[in-house]
Design a protein around this nucleic acid. Structure first.
Lengths: 195, 195
DNA sequence: ACCTAGGTTGAAACTCGGTGTCAGGGTAGC
DNA sequence: GCTACCCTGACACCGAGTTTCAACCTAGGT
């Protein structure tokens, strides 16, 4: 707070480097496969040492999934921003719009990353872990909307919403990105609202 | 099939050893914490070499989670055994009964294992992975019941059902096993059937 | 009783991901 | 120019998991 000028310029530089490293890592992963590439390989390709790479991304997987951290927080914020009279499913569906936007902003890049994730068990698992880590915040945000919440309902619905996202994305990727992700997500949510 | 006598006695011996190793591993994990125990430790405690331990369980986590593999298959089988006129949510709820039974068969042991899993990130993630691996079979079984299934609905509902299980178990463990797991699971499912 | 084949075991070497430490170097503020 | 800070790379280290190999046991056939 006090020394904000220096701190901020540092942060800007850091995120720029992060993006550059992630870019180099992604290219290598897509070319040779995530599991085939070692930390040494990716560090060398990015022009830094293994230590430095691991300082920017705590793990190999984080170079691929790091961009999603922000989206989880965005979703929770979006959830809290919804009008108070909306039903849970509507709120949950809408709070996933940041994801839709992110995929729409770069469809081919998103498709490549999605494929990468689906093809590597390690990445798939980290993805699961990451989504699970979003649940507490979503659950809290959802609970705070309800005057007298029933205990297990909010966490279950939040988890189910994220399942919809995963499954919609999976099908979207299976269609080579040709189907509309928002429509798929709506279809997925219809599992709860229709018979 | 043809040389079944030898093969079967071998299998019986193997599963017996597996159970013994798992028992020893569990005790050690509970005493010292999963992450603190190395493969060498657990192998020594079980009286075998590290190689042998890893031959019985492909990973450290599998010594804790191995018993659940069976339950996933049981759930899919139970799902297929339900009458054709039951609704999806009823079918899914009922196909989780094998889990309830397993927890009821040994509440204190189940509680200890559940705590172990919740306290170790590595175990939590493997658990997520395992549950995700059950989804295809459940989805197929559910799809096969429907004459004209809508594409994304079955996988979403199957995933949501497993979420109910996880969340119910979490709350059950938070109550020190005092609340009734079946009732908690019903409550969780009510997130889909009630408003 | 010998011998052979299958299967199990433990030892050891190896790869790789991830952590921690440390010394050197660049840079901004004094 | 000096100092304090931070970034970097080198290195050592640990633990998980894979692979290879030699020793061994055991059952079956001769």
């Amino acid at each position: 707070m006090e020394d904000s000028i220096r701190a901020k310029t540092r942060d800007i530089a850091r995120t720029a480097i992060r993006a550059e490293l992630a870019q180099a890592a992604l290219e290598l992963f897509r070319r040779e496969g995530f599991d085939q590439v070692t930390l040494n390989d990716v560090a060398a390709a990015a022009g830094v040492s293994r230590s430095t790479f691991l300082r920017y991304f705590g793990s190999k997987e984080e170079a691929v999934l790091g961009a999603m951290d922000d989206l989880g927080a965005q979703a929770a914020a979006a959830l809290r921003a919804r009008p108070a009279d909306e039903g849970d499913w509507t709120v949950l569906r809408r709070c996933l719009d940041p994801f839709i936007d992110a995929y729409r902003a770069d469809p081919s890049g998103s498709l490549a990353i999605t494929r990468l994730i689906q093809e590597s068990p390690a990445l798939r698992n980290r993805q699961l872990e990451k989504q699970a880590s979003w649940l507490p915040a979503l659950t809290r945000a959802l609970t705070d909307r309800s005057p007298r919440p029933r205990p297990l309902v909010a966490p279950v619905r939040a988890a189910a919403a994220l399942d919809c996202l995963s499954i919609a994305v999976t099908h979207w990727s299976a269609s080579n990105g040709e189907e509309d992700l928002a429509a798929l997500l709506d279809q997925a949510f219809s599992a709860f609202t229709a018979t």
